[in-house]
Simulated assay, not measured.
Amino acid sequence: MTKIIQLTDLHIGSSLPFNELDTQTLYAVQELVSLENPDYLVLSGDVIWSHVPHSLQNFEEVLKFFDSLEVPYAVTYGNHDSEIFYLQNKVNKLAENGSNDLEKLLSENEELASFYYQRDEIDVYGRAELNDLVRCSQNHVCKEKLTVVNNREMYVVSIDEQTQLLIVDSGDYDETETGQYAYLEDQQIDWIIEQTQDPSKKSHLFIHIPIPEYAQAIIDGEAEGHQSEEVCSSVLNTGLYAQIKIRNSNIVAIYAGHDHENDFVSDFYGIKLIYGRCSGYNAYGDLSRGARVIEISDNSMTTYIKEFA
Rank of each mutant, 00 (worst) to 15 (best):
residue 155 Y to M: 01
residue 177 E to Q: 15
residue 105 L to Q: 09
residue 99 S to R: 14
residue 117 Y to Q: 09
residue 106 L to G: 04
residue 142 C to L: 15
residue 122 I to W: 02
residue 111 E to P: 04
residue 219 I to F: 07
residue 203 S to A: 15
residue 205 L to M: 10
residue 103 E to D: 10
residue 123 D to H: 11
residue 97 N to S: 13
residue 189 I to V: 11
residue 162 Q to N: 12
residue 188 Q to T: 12
residue 205 L to V: 04
residue 129 E to P: 04
residue 196 T to P: 00
residue 172 D to H: 07
residue 130 L to N: 02
residue 215 A to F: 05
residue 138 Q to H: 12
residue 196 T to V: 07
residue 185 E to H: 11
residue 133 L to D: 00
residue 131 N to Y: 11
residue 178 T to C: 10
residue 153 E to F: 09
residue 207 I to G: 00
residue 106 L to S: 06
residue 202 K to F: 01
residue 113 A to F: 12
residue 94 L to H: 12
residue 171 G to F: 01
residue 204 H to S: 03
residue 201 K to Y: 00
residue 208 H to D: 05
residue 163 T to A: 10
residue 214 Y to D: 05
residue 100 N to H: 13
residue 166 L to K: 01
residue 197 Q to N: 12
residue 145 K to C: 02
residue 161 E to S: 13
residue 133 L to G: 00
residue 219 I to T: 13
residue 203 S to M: 08
residue 172 D to Q: 14
residue 167 I to T: 06
residue 95 A to L: 14
residue 199 P to T: 08
residue 160 D to Q: 11
residue 109 N to V: 01
residue 117 Y to F: 14
residue 140 H to K: 06
residue 189 I to K: 04
residue 206 F to E: 02
residue 176 T to Y: 14
residue 178 T to R: 12
residue 165 L to G: 00
residue 204 H to K: 07
residue 218 I to R: 09
residue 137 S to R: 05
residue 166 L to P: 00
residue 168 V to L: 07
residue 218 I to G: 05
residue 98 G to T: 10
residue 157 V to F: 06
residue 148 V to C: 11
residue 145 K to L: 01
residue 178 T to I: 12
residue 153 E to Y: 09
residue 152 R to E: 08
residue 179 G to L: 04
residue 194 E to C: 08
residue 169 D to I: 08
residue 138 Q to W: 09
residue 112 L to S: 01
residue 135 R to I: 09
residue 198 D to V: 04
residue 127 R to M: 07
residue 133 L to S: 07
residue 156 V to A: 10
residue 164 Q to T: 03
residue 107 S to T: 06
residue 132 D to A: 15
residue 126 G to P: 05
residue 195 Q to T: 03
residue 199 P to M: 14
residue 156 V to F: 07
residue 196 T to E: 05
residue 180 Q to I: 14
residue 119 R to N: 14
residue 125 Y to M: 02
residue 206 F to A: 00
residue 154 M to Q: 10
residue 151 N to T: 13
residue 114 S to Y: 10
residue 142 C to Y: 13
residue 206 F to C: 04
residue 153 E to P: 11
residue 189 I to L: 09
residue 181 Y to V: 07
residue 109 N to P: 11
residue 150 N to T: 07
residue 99 S to F: 15
residue 117 Y to D: 09
residue 118 Q to H: 15
residue 152 R to D: 05
residue 178 T to H: 10
residue 130 L to S: 01
